[in-house]
Amino acid sequence: MAVGEVGTRRRRQPRTPYLLIAPAALAMLAFLVYPVGSVVYYSLQHYNVAKPWEDGFAGLDNFRRMLFEDPLFWQSLGFTVRWVVVEVSLQLVLGLALALIVNETFVGRAVARALVFSPWAVSGVLTTGIWVLLYNPTTGLSRYLADLGLMEYGAAPLANPDTVFAAAVLAELWRGVPFFAILLLADLQSIPRDLYEAASVDGASRLRRFVHVTLPHLKDAIILSTLLRAVWEFNNVDLLYTLTGGGPAHQTTTLPLYVASTAVQSQDFGYGSALTTAGFLILTFFSVAYLRLSKFGART
């Protein structure tokens, strides 16, 4: 982040900037920092709203239960990784392609942009609503394709263990691709034109221009957007919670979804906090490692 020196030449009494950031800082202390701290505290407690008589200090009991006695923890973690990797890579590829397309000049570009970006504004629950309609055997695409004789009646992708993953991935892609397209388009627009002109003069093919001019310029934006998106998809609960409910047979349960159902349904806050703490640790470790390994911010 570039530090703006412009405004700092005036000497003011030093109180003003602190007063200005105070509301933001206090809100974040009270509603982000303190809660994160309290999660760590609760993770060391037995704390179940449904069984208050068992409450008390637990030491590492919750973590032992998580690591050694709870196959659902490992299963949900495995699915989370699969979900994040598949979603982020597909969204990146499609989003980059889309950004390159709508960065060109063509008739109707403004309308095309507004339309292809629009699913970004739609909530996870609404995405579920729409795709439930599309996937349902009596209301969905498959029924009308079957009417035309193109396929069998009765396909129910969400109820079939073989197809539920692909079905959920597709629904989330519909909503997720515009995120990358918007971010990458913003960055594409800041590439100086002379770079391309110079490359053209040098006789570089379009592919070479893409590889040697566009990609290096987009590098930091790609690293940052994939990281943000990975964190976001890791935490994406709304869609899976409503679309599959984590099923069938916990097949599509991510770690946060598992936390949410532990919190909302079984009200076991102590164990839920231990799962949350594990989630924090995994995310922090992943983010730091990702930024390090990808050499974010390094000059190319």
Partner: peptide, 24 residues
């Protein structure tokens, strides 16, 4: 410090904050 703290919050998962925020 303030700036870094702001950026770090981007990695705090909303779904994971359900329990502690509920308590608050």
């Amino acid at each position: 410090l303030f700036l870094v703290a702001m950026l770090c919050t981007q990695f705090i998962p909303g779904a994971m904050m359900l329990i502690p925020l509920f308590e608050v």
